[in-house]
Design a protein around this nucleic acid. Structure first.
Lengths: 127, 127
DNA sequence: CAGCATCCACCTCGATACTG
DNA sequence: CAGTATCGAGGTGGATGCTG
């Protein structure tokens, strides 16, 4: 990513710049702890707000709302509000959301796999 | 990841909890904008501090130092200081670092691929 | 139950200045 | 050049209370 700006003063210039800054923005949105944990928690399931709150350990009400809004805005999760009382709101990953989840899975797998290496690296560094 | 705590009062209990909290810690370290951008910028190359500063657009001196220390501590980058004057310090991804980079690549690819979808999703949401 | 608004303690981050 | 320390503005995120 982060398309190198090699062209100069060409018509596409502005468009490329815009696409690049958009990409950076999306990357910043998505490359954060809570967003990734929410995506991972959702997986293939459809979860209510309160269920999600329980699944994503340690997330506050506020952070969950905030990140869900952001993910919804970027078209990564689908929000379905049922007009019942009490309210019932369900969240599901969209196709792009599911696609991104594979990347999150890789990170999670990587974390598990290298726990040992990291722990010993820390031991060495802290000494 | 985030191993479900299903066992109760067993000997392994403590160990599992520790591994889990360690995993969370690492995930938090790694799932942040600058760390991922630094890993992506390094790639297969060996770069000096100042080169890295140029490659990772928008990173401040402080953030770069801070994240490099963290990555070094976790054994993701290798730091090699040459005792010359002026100083010359080179950074390279370790094997685990390179492994994680494949995940970053997936995220970057995903970002590029879904730019259009995301932009239109935003348009819809903001309306 | 889900969501929004408010308040505020804390911490992140950039700027700056200084060392080896 | 690389790194550390300091400081201050601004952002982050938790707690709380209120709405439909």
């Amino acid at each position: 990513m982060v398309t190198k700006q090699l062209l100069k003063d060409l018509p596409e210039d502005a468009d490329l710049r815009r696409a690049d800054s958009l990409a950076r923005e999306i990357f910043s949105d998505v490359a954060n702890k809570w967003a990734l944990l929410i995506i991972e928690a959702l997986g293939e399931r459809t979860l209510r707000f309160s269920e999600l709150r329980n699944e994503v350990e340690g997330v506050s009400h506020k952070m969950l709302t905030q990140n869900l809004r952001m993910l919804e805005r970027n078209g990564l999760v689908d929000r379905k509000a049922h007009p019942t009382v009490p309210p019932r709101v369900e969240y599901t990953l969209t196709d792009p959301g599911r696609a991104l989840r594979t990347a999150v899975d890789v990170i999670c797998g990587w974390t598990q796999q290298h726990l040992g290496h990291i722990e010993s690296a820390r031991g060495r560094f802290d000494a």
